[in-house]
Nucleic acid binder design. Structure first.
Lengths: 112, 112
DNA sequence: ATTAGATACATAATTTTCTTATGTATAATT
DNA sequence: AATTATACATAAGAAAATTATGTATCTAAT
């Protein structure tokens, strides 16, 4: 099952930030592959959504970049800035809270 | 804490469908108030988002309506159609699955 | 050797969906 | 009498994703 696109809306930034928190630095393609693997293909980030989002986060000063070349092929690594680390904590905490609220609202029992 | 709007994106339809499943029939204003109460004000549906969404679901045949008057004031009650009930089950099940995936991805332990 | 698939970036046009603002009207409360 | 709450609706604009397209390199298979 691949989740309907509307479900994933609004979680993209949180996913990016969390992954960068755990992995120090990642490049765009790597993020798409990692999310795909971790979710067994259930979440497949599209490039058209990911790259503009990364660019926006960089422009906001949340992410910083370093470009490297593997042979002649470019890789643009992203990592969290200092304010980016703070924002990450906020976002994760907000999302955790949101999930509890939604769980209650939808009366979904935790699958412990 | 009121959740950032981007977080709520994509969950509106699921919330509407779940509430209608539990309450048989509800009118728009009632939905906004119920969500507000159930979430202690954390989720506040705006009319500009709710009504177009209800109209779309009705046009798709997911919801059916009956109009009543309380004095001279109109109420438009929405309830699930037969295909609407099937869709509701799907949506809730998809969302439950999605939450588990996000929990894993964000490494959030269930607050049992 | 050539083709196909994977890696790796980027962006533009369109669509979808929400926000914000506005509008109308009735009922209840202060 | 004025304000707040109830109750609907929609339009303009903004935000964000989808879809499609483009460029280019590297690897594996035929």
């Amino acid at each position: 099952m691949i989740y309907s696109s509307e479900l994933i809306k609004g979680t993209l930034k949180t996913i990016i930030l969390k992954l960068l928190k755990e992995n120090k630095r990642m490049y765009g393609y790597e993020i798409t592959q990692t999310v795909k693997e971790l979710t067994q293909g259930k979440i497949q980030l599209t490039e058209g959504a990911l790259y503009p989002s990364l660019h926006a986060l960089e422009a906001e000063g949340i992410l910083v970049t370093e470009t490297e070349y593997i042979g002649k092929r470019m890789r643009k690594y992203y990592s969290l800035s200092v304010p980016g680390k703070a924002l990450t904590k906020e976002k994760i905490s907000e999302f955790t809270d949101f999930m509890e609220t939604m769980r209650f609202l939808l009366d979904i029992k935790p699958a412990v």
